[in-house]
Computed example of a mutant assay.
Amino acid sequence: MMSLPESIESEFKQEIRSYEEDLQMPYVTSVERLARQEGVLQQKREVDFKRFVDLYCIL
């Protein structure tokens, strides 16, 4: 087994921790991703419409 110099051992351990955390991240399917994007767009449309109504109701 090979030993790493102390100067890079902590960096290596951090990289391993980061990699292991990434492995635990849930997978998001393309359908879920598209649905999420559509939800964001719908919310933006609703906000824009509310601003439009508020603006023209004042006039």
Rank of each mutant, 00 (worst) to 15 (best):
Y56I: 11
S30H: 10
M1N: 11
S18E: 15
F49C: 08
L34C: 09
V28L: 14
G39A: 08
Y19G: 00
G39F: 01
E20S: 07
Y19A: 04
T29V: 09
K44H: 10
M2T: 05
Q43H: 11
F52C: 12
V31L: 10
Y56F: 15
V40N: 03
E38K: 13
S7K: 07
S10C: 06
S7Q: 12
V31C: 06
P5A: 11
V28A: 13
G39C: 04
V28C: 11
Y19I: 05
V47Y: 01
V40K: 09
P5C: 10
L34E: 15
T29R: 07
E21Y: 01
V31R: 15
L55K: 15
L34H: 12
F49L: 14
V47L: 03
V28P: 01
Q24W: 02
I16H: 02
V31Y: 09
M25G: 05
E38W: 06
M25A: 13
L41W: 05
D54K: 06
K44Y: 07
E20Y: 08
F12G: 02
F49K: 14
Q43A: 14
E38H: 11
Y56D: 01
K50L: 13
P26Y: 01
E32S: 09
S10F: 02
K50P: 01
I8Y: 05
I8R: 12
P26G: 03
V47G: 00
I8K: 11
R17I: 02
P5T: 05
M25R: 15
A35H: 08
R33W: 02
E46C: 06
Q24L: 12
Q43M: 09
E15S: 07
S7M: 06
F52E: 14
S10R: 06
G39R: 04
V53C: 11
L34I: 07
L34P: 00
L41S: 10
G39Y: 02
R51Q: 13
V28W: 08
D54Y: 05
Q24M: 08
A35Y: 02
S7H: 07
D48L: 04
T29Q: 10
P26L: 05
V28K: 09
L23G: 02
R51C: 09
S3V: 00
E21G: 00
Q37T: 08
M25T: 04
R51A: 11
D54E: 15
V28H: 06
Y27Q: 03
V40M: 12
V47R: 02
I58Y: 11
A35Q: 14
E20N: 12
L59I: 07
E46N: 14
I16Q: 05
S30T: 10
